[in-house]
Design a protein around this nucleic acid. Structure first.
Length: 827
RNA sequence: GCGAGAGUGGCGGAACUGGCAGACGCACUGGACUUAGGAUCCAGCGGGCAACCGUAGGGGUUCAAAUCCCCUCUCUCGCACCA
């Protein structure tokens, strides 16, 4: 027949067919098991990159595979469409963020379609659509009513390049998560979501998500950072005021000899008022607070502090403790005040030495001998209580509880738990985002926009100034409004929401994208959610995944949905790298999907993305490797189209018992390959080994094809092998396999074909190459029938010519036989 | 520093529960076909002439170790003054 493989034509043909037939459109069907497969939706930056190609190819194979396994598969796609780059483009290219965004979406959608992904495009959504973001405003107002939203003046992370506030999660090692600029701090009002109200549940459920990678769970647990300890109250000297501290070491309170406050602590400056230290303290506090996040949290920043002039009283010893301000104490954690126990905390130890403060040992190691004069470092291991009144002699672990109880009895403290997790600051001083539906009234204060007045529409007639600042505060048509309570003149909030808000519930909305009476349709959400398999990059291990878990719980508590966790299984795929590093313009190692598509077609690109490495590992992009995949695809094509009899309909049934040995081998290989491919995809998503197995089957088939003449009954086995390959490879290379299928005159769509089954009997080997070892070293082989009698095997092994020479005259000490594997003769 | 993961040919990567190390692919070498080959097909391909040696290095357990245990080294990722 000699038909040249022309991927572009074939791919367009089938993509059009799929689209016109709406083959991937799905609806709820209670009679079938659903499977919700989701890949993280992209930011519409302009064009898709290789990371998307890989992520979405992996997802598409799983979606198509599950569908062939009989599931009703939901596989949607959309756009995370609010965000800074649109504003940057507006300045650089003089194009409105909306126009820029929607044009990008159009182009990227066409790219995804060219890849042949099986999305239900009818569910497509863009988060910058009013019909999407208006519901988020409703959530916001309801959360406000539930006390989960509040505004406060706070020290916030500020990215000078993005000119906006960042949440704690969005600062990575002191740098902005998006642009890597150094983050500074600022005092400003902002809106916060009370994610801390869910800290305990978020933590607890970490252990109930067995389908998540261990390391993601660990990162989330560490981020939430639960610590057990106690709060302890210290009375100020000559004052009724108190300082509360949190400590994980209540057992060491008898050794607390001074106090350290965060520079932001209200008492820090107050205590020095009217003392000789006033000026020093003010200067110190000012200096530390001005430092950026990096300098302040860097490893090598020296611990320093100043005396405030104030004292407090140790509640158990009555000792007078000087109060310091220290640069290493964080206002955000605990209470912003630390009781310092220099003998049992390394930081306090160093601080005490620097400023000549007293040391009292209160936990003595089992071997004893710990004394303040000879200590070179804090002792932080377990031990026996000393210098601690009635607690002396107690094991220090027990003393934690005992001392906390004692403090409670004298009303000076209690057991306490503290989390590292902070509330989520969601205010962004940006234009291209979801407006926060709040109104500031000079008379009534903060008033939420009533639900009936929602949505607050982001005005599209705004122009972004050269400076990059948000135009909203100066846009009077937007800011001027009437107070919903008193009808007096009022001003709209001009901050917009963090774009992570939109990505925290888009997966719910996919279940009911057209619902226009409510954000979510409970019945549809109940059918589809939670997501069975979520796939995306590890870079969202905390950010997006933690926020989404939080949102799910909030929406659950608003009775919008019923499940507790959004993603049952999570696959974090590795990066696509080239020449040893991540693809980037500056390195000049970027591979453009469009180039690949025009040169090789989608099937080859998909195949290589899957074949080059298992999904969770980084993928090393290799141009020559792509050639290899292209070669395989061509060989498959030719084996089919170069043999006219292959093109004819289905193979006839044949009796495997009647086959020649070599064809029987092929029949066996077919069944073994189905088993292997099914296992690899189902259990581990290891497409690379699944494809390798298909290649093996192909190689065997192609080798046999010329030696089994047309008309020979054996052709049916060959035909069966090709048929099976087409079906099994169809999730990976859907276009060409469908073309081959149709060429055979078959009218079914491969996506709806049942996944092939294997016959375990036919997959069984009847002969085994048994390995014979002498003292654990390979010396000979023996071909035996499966399940040959053990004695017979031993006998034959010992009689083997090579083995006889190896053993020589030596006495055989032992013969170990591993069934159907090997014989090891020990001499 | 703490925590997690990884280290296998020239390269990407295979190897079930300890049982033939290197599947599959790339690169490379030789050959065939050819005006030509960056197409295709066939053969070879860890090192060593060999005995043998080989899964980062060293020790151990075992009849048998890439796989289990101990020590060391290297790389990647995460956390990093969290009281």
């Amino acid at each position: 027949m000699d038909i040249k493989y022309d991927p572009t034509a074939i791919e367009l043909k089938w993509q059009t067919y799929w689209e016109e037939k709406k083959l991937f459109q799905v609806t709820e069907d209670p009679s079938r098991k659903k499977y919700y497969l989701l890949e993280m939706f992209p930011y519409p930056s302009g064009r898709i990159h290789m990371g998307h190609v890989r992520n979405y190819t992996i997802g598409d194979v799983v979606a198509r595979y599950k569908r062939m396994r009989g599931y009703n598969v939901l596989h949607p796609m959309g756009w995370d469409a609010f965000g800074m780059p649109a504003e940057n483009a507006a300045i650089a290219k003089k194009v409105h963020p909306a126009k820029w965004t929607y044009e990008n979406i159009d182009y990227m959608r066409s790219q995804l379609k060219k890849m042949g992904f099986s999305y239900d495009w009818d569910r497509e959504l863009a988060t910058c659509d009013v019909d999407y973001y208006k519901w988020e405003q409703l959530f916001f107002v309801r959360m406000y009513e539930k006390g989960l939203v509040y505004q406060k003046e706070a020290t916030v992370n500020w990215c000078p390049a993005c000119q906006t506030v960042l949440a704690n999660e969005q600062v990575e090692a002191g740098l902005c998560w998006r642009c890597s600029s150094e983050v500074t701090t600022r005092e400003m009002p902002g809106w916060f979501l009370k994610i801390t109200a869910y800290a305990e549940e978020l933590l607890e459920y970490c252990d109930r998500l067995p389908g998540w990678p261990e390391r993601v769970m660990t990162m989330q647990k560490n981020w939430i950072g639960k610590s057990y300890g106690a709060n302890i109250i210290f009375q100020l000297e000559n004052s009724t005021e108190q300082i509360k501290v949190f400590t994980t070491r209540p057992d060491t309170v008898f050794g607390a000899t001074f106090m350290t406050l965060a520079p932001e602590h209200p008492l820090a400056v107050k205590l020095s008022r009217g003392t000789p230290q006033e000026k020093t303290v003010d200067e110190f506090v000012q200096r530390v607070r001005k430092q950026d996040m990096i300098a302040r949290t860097a490893d090598d920043t020296e611990k320093e502090g100043v005396f405030t002039g104030g004292y407090c009283i140790n509640p158990v010893t009555g000792a007078r403790m000087p109060i310091f301000v220290g640069n290493f104490v964080l206002m955000e954690y605990g209470t912003g005040a630390v009781m310092a126990v220099p003998t049992h905390d390394q930081r306090d130890f160093e601080f005490a030495h620097k400023y000549g403060l007293p040391l009292i040992v209160v936990v003595q190691p089992p071997e004893g001998g710990l004394a303040p004069e000879t200590m070179t470092a804090a002792y932080v291991n377990p031990g026996i209580m000393v210098n601690s009144g009635q607690f002396n002699g107690m094991d220090n672990e027990q003393a934690k509880r005992a001392i906390a109880d004692y403090l409670a009895s004298i009303q000076k403290g209690a057991l306490a738990v503290t989390y590292r997790l902070r509330d989520w600051g969601i205010s962004r001083q940006r234009y291209w985002g979801n407006p926060i539906p709040m109104i500031h009234c000079p008379a009534c204060g903060i008033v939420p926009v009533p639900e009936k007045d929602l949505p607050v529409i982001l005005p599209l007639d705004a122009e972004i100034p050269e400076s990059g600042e948000s135009p909203l505060p100066r846009l009077e048509s937007f800011t001027n409004t009437a107070c919903p309570k008193c009808a007096g003149p009022a001003r709209r909030e001009t901050d917009t929401m963090d774009t992570f808000m939109e990505s925290s519930w888009y997966f719910d909305r996919y279940a009911c994208p057209d619902c226009n009476t409510a954000p979510l349709d409970p019945a549809k959400v109940k059918y589809w959610l939670p997501v069975d398999q979520y796939i995306g990059g590890i870079e969202h291990a905390i950010l997006h995944l933690l926020y989404s878990r939080f949102f799910t719980k909030v929406l659950r508590d608003m009775n919008m949905l019923e499940h507790n966790e959004p993603f049952t299984n999570l696959l974090t795929q590795g990066m696509v790298i080239k020449d040893g590093s991540k693809m980037s313009k500056s390195k000049g190692n970027v591979v453009d999907p469009d180039d690949l598509l025009s040169r090789y077609g989608a099937d080859t690109v998909r195949l290589f993305s899957l074949f080059a490495s298992p999904p969770e590992r980084d993928l090393d992009w290799s141009d020559q490797g792509v050639d290899g995949s292209y070669r395989f695809v061509n060989r498959l094509w030719r084996l089919f189209f170069d043999h006219p009899d292959m093109i004819k309909a289905s193979p006839a049934e044949y009796d495997p018992g009647q086959l020649t040995p070599e064809l029987k081998r092929l029949d066996r290989k077919i069944h073994q390959t189905i088993r292997k491919v099914t296992d690899d995809i189902d259990k581990k998503f290891h497409f690379n080994t699944a494809i390798a197995a298909c290649m093996e089957l192909f190689n065997l088939t192609a080798g046999l094809c010329p030696v089994v003449p047309v008309g020979d009954p054996g052709r049916d086995v060959i035909k069966m092998a090709i048929d099976t390959l087409i079906v099994m490879l169809s999730p990976m290379i859907p276009h060409m396999t469908q073309e081959m299928w149709a060429t055979m005159g078959r009218s079914d769509d491969l996506v709806d074909l049942p996944w092939p089954k294997y016959d375990p009997e036919r997959a069984k080997e009847d002969e085994i190459q048994l390995v014979i070892q002498v003292n654990g070293k390979l010396r000979s082989r023996l071909t035996i029938a499966v399940d040959t009698d053990e004695e017979e095997i031993k006998q034959r092994a010992l009689e083997d010519e090579k083995i006889v020479t190896f053993i020589g005259g030596a006495a055989v000490k032992k013969v170990i036989l591993v069934k159907n594997k090997l014989v090891n003769i020990v001499i």
